[in-house]
């Protein structure tokens, strides 16, 4: 508290001076342009940063995707038209990544699809179960809610390190497995298990967020409906099937869309946990974009930008699908 007081004493006069001088200048401008036009002034700083670091790059990305070479500055880059896309989509057989020129890209796509399907269904299932459990009349509800939500706040690097430590060969998981008569595994180096753990860890880290959303959805269902259904003699399953599920559907839809969009962009957790390995087993699309453009010896910015556009288009499709379906479900 003392430190804050001291800081406050120092910064307050400075801040006041700044605010007052801004006020002076703005009053002058306001006198000239009128009140409503002041809106432009207030929106300007945000618009400027947005324009320079979001809007302009979005347009520039298109140009990058159509240029080649390894130089960063656009003027040094030869225009190659759609070559980068041709390279990405150069496959004898689209179902087998080995037949593609950029096999890593296609492996990334297939891994991403597999990851998204597994992760999103696990998240929807477990956050629904948890939300239903937390919505009951239970002791220590706040405690349990916090426990399930806590990992959401942890950084992906921290989450990955926690699990890397648990899963390592001489780690606590193997000790437990041996205790029950199983055999030790190198969990993150096994081609089958690596994907399982990547999904598991990301569900562990993210499900609390969706649980909260579903819990809010459950709590907004009016209790009178359950009273009515119990008068009608409905059992708990019928309660769930005919009251809870239909009313929870919009919330479920939100959870589905949000987790889907999040899953497609997955990178941090996996990068630290497995680095995309073993081999390329858990390398997803974003990691391909990062590796191609930034961490490889030869930085292929064009290819990276082209791949990021493929990702962008997938996200766009998902968003549009959401709008479309969202409208339909609200009409129904």
């Amino acid at each position: 508290m003392r430190l804050i007081d001291i800081l406050d004493r120092i910064t307050r006069p400075l801040l006041l001076l700044l605010v007052m001088s801004v006020d002076r200048i703005l009053t002058l401008i306001q006198g000239r342009v009128g009140i409503d036009k002041m809106g432009y002034f207030f929106v300007l700083p945000n618009l400027l940063i947005f324009g320079i670091f979001v809007l302009f790059p979005m347009l520039l990305n298109l140009y990058y995707a159509m240029t080649g070479g390894t130089k960063l500055f656009p003027a040094d880059r030869p225009f190659v038209g759609l070559d980068n896309f041709a390279t990405l989509f150069d496959c004898d057989d689209f179902l087998s990544p080995n037949s593609c020129q950029e096999d890593l890209f296609w492996r990334g796509i297939f891994n991403t699809i597999q990851f998204v399907v597994l992760q999103v269904s696990a998240i929807v299932l477990f956050s629904l179960l948890t939300a239903l459990a937390l919505n009951r009349r239970i002791i220590a509800r706040g405690f349990f809610r916090s426990v399930f939500f806590y990992p959401v706040l942890l950084s992906p690097v921290v989450v990955a390190l926690i699990w890397k430590w648990v899963l390592q060969y001489e780690g606590v998981l193997n000790a437990i497995v041996e205790l029950f008569g199983g055999e030790s595994m190198r969990w993150l180096l096994d081609t089958n298990w690596a994907m399982f753990w990547v999904v598991f860890v990301s569900v562990w880290a993210l499900m609390g967020f969706y649980t909260l959303i579903l819990l809010a959805g459950l709590q907004s269902i009016p209790p009178e409906l359950y009273e009515a259904s119990s008068i009608d003699g409905a059992n708990t399953w019928q309660d769930f099937r005919f009251v809870t599920m239909p009313l929870l559907m919009p919330t479920m839809f939100v959870v589905l869309v949000l987790s889907l969009i999040r899953a497609v962009q997955m990178f941090d957790h996996i990068f630290v946990l497995t680095g995309g390995g073993p081999g390329t087993r858990t390398q997803l699309m974003v990691q391909y974009i990062y590796t191609t453009g930034f961490s490889n010896q030869i930085q292929l910015f064009g290819l990276s930008a082209a791949a990021s556009m493929v990702l962008g288009v997938s996200l766009l499709i998902l968003t549009l699908l959401q709008l479309r379906l969202g409208n339909q479900s609200s009409l129904a």
Binding site: F50, M58, Q265, S304, G312, L315, L316, T319
Partner: peptide
């Protein structure tokens, strides 16, 4: 302007890594 801001809700920086890197550089 509002729609412009909000429409980027679903566009993460992942999609524009290269050009933002150019601006920064």
């Amino acid at each position: 302007i509002f729609v412009l801001f909000i429409s980027t809700l679903m566009i993460p920086i992942t999609v524009i890594l290269v050009p933002v890197f150019l601006v920064i550089t």
